[in-house]
Amino acid sequence: MRGIFLFINKQHPTPVTHFFTGGPLTRFSLLLTQSPLANQSFASALQFAKAALAQGFTIEQIFLYEEAVLAAATAIDLPTDEPNLAATLAQFCQQQQIALLYCITAAEKRGVQADTSGHYIAAGLAEFAMRLANTKLVQF
């Protein structure tokens, strides 16, 4: 059961087609729930997002929940020779203008102070749920 779930949305409201395949243009929602320091989920999500954009798909949101909200903690001070996946993801989302959201309740529960750089946007589960409509969800 572990790993990525990717399920095809059977109805799509807008008849926009993919430039290459001619199929419907998919919008993705990515849900991250694991710590950016504990495993490769952030790296996988980033790879997926890059590949999706390269294929002409769009990304509606990247939402951080549970342990993943640690990425928004500005006080985390990584040694410079260790990969900073949280920063890489933030930079990528800024370049590509992808909404990078984190759950404020999950963050406060973990003592994560709001990210003042503005890369990570404080949001609620309600916003995740609303943006989820008409997208395909991929969980990391």
């Binding site: 404020i104 404080a122 949001a123 609620g124 309600a126 916003e127 609303m130």
Partner: peptide, 10 residues
């Protein structure tokens, strides 16, 4: 809206 509520709460 979700965001209004958020703003108001914070």
């Amino acid at each position: 809206t979700a965001l209004n509520e958020l703003k108001e709460n914070s």
